[in-house]
Design a binder for these strands. Structure first.
Length: 348
DNA sequence: ACTCTGTCTCTAGACGCT
DNA sequence: TGAGACAGAGT
DNA sequence: AGCGTCC
């Protein structure tokens, strides 16, 4: 579920924290991905067939762009989240939610596939989103790609949405520093704001939506102070409200060893063996994709050689990450400061 | 008027052939 | 599952 | 670009 209406709030109150890019702008970056989100996307898109092929194709596309993905797997969700998970499972189907953190067979398949692709993965102690955010905070990853907004209160500076394998698709980047700057609140205050908006870890105060919650936090800075200044008749505080626990989950980083992330060449023969023999994917499909993969990499390599020979210095580091705006200029100057920054200036 | 809530509806990935 | 559109109720 | 297929 993520944070209720947070995307709307940002779009309306801090559009400058959002920038539109394309996948090639993330060349050379380490991107952390919440595996369960990715797999669920493929499952939702093609309910009848395995999400493995989707994972296979998309990961290769990342690698073709010299993007270094690291897949993070969910661990045992925190106690506070079980209520939300149960409610979600009940709404979806009768199935009991996985509260134990035990790897399903599907998860094992994903692990195996990633291993054959030479892509690193990490088992999170708790929520994958939390660990993704920590990887970004400590500099292990440059950004986290997810459709969920949770990583922002978890402290990930850069969140990327709509990062898929389609050509010319718009990638949406959220900058946490820009967001806090624009809203004029601290990270701690932002966490309180997210709790008021509604998160997975505790109840919310009914009657408070994005606009009021933001105003209240900007005025009173903490949930404790907000509670003192609202009408408790019209906006009753939940009984046994565990907002402090939720706050702790967001702000206290999960302890984890910083693993050395290694990317190696995909093992084509093993991939064919697994995907085609075990999972019955058409051999020719896998082969053809791997062929394209090798060709794309080769041409990229040649291109780099040419650039180096031409004296162009290599792509540098973190700095250009925040400044990439080499898309054709967007008509941002044209009045309209409110919400519609969503124009697509076309595609190359 | 403004804003939150509930309910409804639609959509969702990537490839390759034409 | 989430995200937009709409109707409805509360302030 | 549109559309059927992937498993």
């Amino acid at each position: 579920m993520g944070i209720t209406k947070l995307a709307d709030l940002i779009r309306f109150h801090a559009p400058d924290a959002i920038s539109h890019k394309e996948i090639s702008d993330f060349t050379g970056k380490v991107i952390a991905l919440d595996t369960s989100i990715v797999v669920n996307q493929f499952r939702a898109a093609t309910p009848t067939l395995s999400p493995l092929t989707g994972l296979f194709f998309r990961t290769l596309t990342f690698l073709e762009h010299d993007i270094k993905p690291v897949f993070v797997f969910d661990g045992k969700p925190p106690e506070e989240k079980t209520a939300a998970l149960e409610k979600r499972a009940e709404a979806a189907s009768w199935k009991c939610p996985n509260l134990t953190g035990t790897a399903s067979s599907q998860t094992k398949d994903c692990l195996h596939l990633l291993k054959l692709l030479g892509v690193p993965f990490i088992q999170a102690p708790g929520d994958a989103e939390a660990l993704c955010a920590q990887l970004v905070r400590e500099g292990t990853a440059d950004a986290v790609a997810s459709e969920d907004m949770d990583t922002l209160p978890f402290g990930a500076n850069i969140l990327i949405r709509q990062l898929n394998a389609k050509r010319d698709s718009e990638v949406v980047e959220y900058s946490l520093p820009k967001l806090l700057e624009k809203l004029q609140i601290s990270q701690e205050e932002f966490v309180d704001l997210c709790i008021l908006l509604g998160c997975d870890y505790c109840d919310k105060i009914t009657g408070l939506g994005p606009k009021k919650a933001l105003t209240l936090i900007q005025k009173h800075r903490t949930i404790e102070n907000v509670v003192l200044h609202i009408n408790r008749q019209t906006h009753p505080v939940p009984h046994f409200w565990k907002y402090k626990e939720a706050r702790k989950i967001f702000l206290d980083a999960p302890q984890t060893v910083d693993p050395k992330l290694i990317w190696t060449e995909p093992d084509e023969e093993a991939l064919v063996g697994f995907l085609c023999h075990v999972k019955y994917v058409k051999v020719e499909r896998v082969r053809r994709r791997m062929e394209r993969f090798r060709q794309t990499r080769e041409s990229k390599r040649e291109e780099r050689e040419r650039d180096k020979a031409a004296g162009r210095s290599r792509q540098t580091r973190m700095e250009d990450f925040f400044r990439v705006t080499r898309k054709r200029e967007q008509p941002v100057e044209a009045a309209d400061s409110s919400s519609s920054n969503r124009k697509r200036p076309k595609s190359t």
